[in-house]
Amino acid sequence: MNIDAIQNGIVIDHITAGRAMRIYDLLGLDALDVSVAIIKNAVSHKTGDKKDIIKIDSTMPVNFDVLGFVDPGVTVNIIRDGQLVEKRRIEMPQRLTNVIRCKNPRCITSTERAIDHVFKLTDPKNKVYRCIYCETKA
């Protein structure tokens, strides 16, 4: 399957197969008025494994924390005038602000208005994030 190369935009590559839609949702790509291609189960030339790819026909600011939280190891390629100008491998962020919400009904974030929902990475090996207020796992 072929998708046209983009002239000015962003390619999020090496997404673990099946996670593209979660990234699409968390990045709010549904609100964009530009072409967005989601390629599922593409075969990686490097490893031969399946992967997902998202191509965005716009150089919008990307929340790298979302990418690092959902799928650390993805790469973000910035394309300008048809040329690759920046390639970045995304690591797990130390803190996540307003990306996800705390699920604990006893947490102050469930009642306090205008509060940032903040999680911190407490166990990088097992990718554990905890709410900074109540320490509940994300």
Binding site: R106, C107, T109, E112, Y133, C134, E135
Partner: peptide
């Protein structure tokens, strides 16, 4: 306060020191 994390919220907003005297089961 009965909510977990309430003392941290108060501490961030207050201009004076806050001592947590118990925030829910936290």
């Amino acid at each position: 306060h009965p909510k977990e994390g309430a003392a941290l919220v108060a501490a961030r907003a207050a201009s004076i020191p806050v001592i947590n005297a118990g925030d829910g089961g936290h």
